[in-house]
Design a protein around this nucleic acid. Structure first.
Lengths: 224, 224, 224, 224
DNA sequence: GATGAATGAGTTTTCATTCAT
DNA sequence: CATGAATGAAAACTCATTCAT
């Protein structure tokens, strides 16, 4: 049970070089796991395949992770250590709304699409595994949504937005980016931002978000 | 491999009552499989669990399906037999844009949320299993998108929409509904339409889609 | 966890022939397990070896037993179903003490030595495995000792025995037979009753128990 | 295989201090092994657990012992270095029989019960492991029994004992003490001499051995 | 056609042992 | 010599699938 994982040994002042080697090895294994999980799915992926991908022996994986599930948690944790998305909203209030939405949208798309294999590895289990899902929800979704909601409330107060249902709207916008990635995962490669910000897409998206699709009869003033 | 599945026996004129019994049994098993897959995921689900849920013996399942994978295909096929979504667009052109978008949005949300367990059962494998994904993509996504694209093109031609990137926009809107369901699957129950059309949500969504979130400095004329 | 073992299905009136087949198979497997455990010890014994010895596939064992430990419990349970030793004392009071001790001793030795492989299989784990030990103690030792103690108390009351410490004496006598078997297990084949009552040994033992080893003259002057 | 164990290095005149350190370390490890084997059994005991108990690194154990089995042999060897039991019989002939039996019994019980963990550690493997059993038998049982047999023969010659089957009797008496320890190992703590000579028990036992359990009156007319 | 016991391939995990530091 | 991370062989156990009844 309490397999002696390699971790910060509180008793001894941990050798910092050793520490780094350990961290490197952990990442090496998590990278391999991400790759293999993405390719075959969590269950079809064998420890052996991951070990080979990582270039270590099967047993070595268990020196760094308690079991196969822990690999998934490890992947999730690394995802959460990613430069905090919540922060994007921090500077938001200062700048122009359109500029902000463009910047935010484009960064979020880039983040999602840059991590396609990671989501491909994680999502199936997130959908299926209650414990993992709870953790992802708590640490990621539940941690981000309120920040966005607060930002939207600010915008409304500043008269920059019309008062729609804030919670629903925030989710719709999150859903839009997330759903685009899902379409990609499901094989629709019409939209693919992997490997580079796509300013055009972010622009289209920003316009859709800000102005909607309706013609401006309505929109006379746009040209004006 | 080529186990003699129960199917149209071309030699004998198939007994129609027999035929119906077979179909009923197939559905009974697929229902069980959907339930169990949704609850535990495809791999954690055992044939035994499905058989028990369906109230048959393990072996019986193999009379109706070649193997475990075939259950997944069966579920997918039933999904595709669902009253075609593509048709929604057919009548579209005739009616008022806002009314159409509302109707469409609401129907699509209802469809997705009514089948949450089905998607929970299917999605993880769709993401993971290349063959299944291709099939889903071909039969569902690739079959629907062009219809929507054509409809949008018509709207633009009719001056009801501004010329945005049609393909991208169609995907963004599809992504929005799909993404909302994903959020639900991932544990966010802020949005939940299961068990009943939610007109309010469809309204909010329609407004967002048509008009965007930006304030109407611009939008003075809305009230007018 | 709760693997559906084959057991009395309470719902259906269990097919008695089926029942017997199941019982036969269980015994077949337990026999094999006893043999292999005795030969190699519980841990060195592999499920594969047991399966081969039993002439079944590895997996079949798990149809009848939840896990390797359950084999041990199964062996123990069969031991306890052996014609109850406690009963030996029942008729004791009626007959002559020497006849009784001889009969009892001889039966007990026969039982122990006839089941040498069984004890060889069981004992190492009994010594080591707390749970199994507790069960063996409760069901076997604790169930037998009081009967013997009561019998001894009766004998003392009847004036046939001198008042020694009853509990200790009972244990010493039990220990004697048990210890003889242990010596056999440890390689001393001076004493071996396997495969047939050995009346001579039972006689020697009875005499030792009843009269001790001291020369008689010594005994006469003791009272003096 | 033939790992260069730390042993008498014949080339160099062995540093006697070094020698002692080595011996100390060996004992430290054997103590740990005894503890852990007794607690969990040989197979459940891991080298890691033993190393931790001994306060050394896993690898260090292999500097002092060729492999896990060698730990068992080491434990056995230390047991055999225990102040030889055979010697007890040496002085026997001189003293009074009852005094001798009491002294011997009491010492033997003390020895067995003082080493309960050791036997708990050793016995399961002795029963199971042929090689170890042979060694134990040769060095311990086979080495002791003849001494006792000779002593008994002397006693008979001296008229202190009646001529029973000597070999069998010797074994029965050995079995009695050994069996008492077994009962203890199996959870019966009615008899427990650990941590102190129990003169009362030795007395009861001596009386049983010398006089038997039969009432005396019976005994008087026996000779008649 | 239905049943469910039997099968055995395939997986995770453990742990004795080695060996570079 | 001590260390403990790496190794990989071995084993328990699961479960899709088959097939005799």
């Amino acid at each position: 049970m309490a397999t002696s994982q390699i971790q910060s040994t509180p008793a001894a002042a941990v050798d910092p070089i050793q520490q780094q080697l350990v961290e490197a090895r952990r990442n090496q294994i998590l990278d391999a796991a991400t790759t293999v999980f993405a390719a075959s799915g969590f269950h079809r992926a064998t420890i052996r395949a991951i070990a080979q991908q990582a270039g270590v022996a099967d047993g070595t994986i268990y020196t760094y992770f308690a079991n196969k599930d822990a690999l998934l948690l490890g992947i999730l944790d690394r995802l959460n250590e990613t430069p905090a998305r919540a922060d994007h909203f921090a500077q938001g209030a200062t700048v122009d709304l359109r500029a902000f939405v463009t910047a935010y949208t484009s960064r979020r798309l880039a983040l999602l699409f840059a991590n396609l294999p990671l989501f491909q590895a994680l999502l199936p289990e997130l959908i299926t595994n209650t414990e993992l899902r709870r953790r992802y929800y708590d640490e990621t979704i539940a941690a981000t949504m309120p920040v966005a909601e607060r930002y939207f409330a600010d915008c409304i107060a500043a008269g920059e937005m019309r008062p729609l249902d804030v919670k629903a709207t925030v989710r719709m916008l999150a859903a839009m980016t997330f759903g685009l990635m899902m379409l990609r995962l499901l094989g629709d490669d019409t939209i693919d931002v992997s490997g580079g910000d796509d300013h055009r897409l972010a622009d289209v998206m920003t316009t859709l978000i800000l102005e909607g699709i309706e013609a401006e009869e309505a929109g006379n003033d746009r040209g004006a």
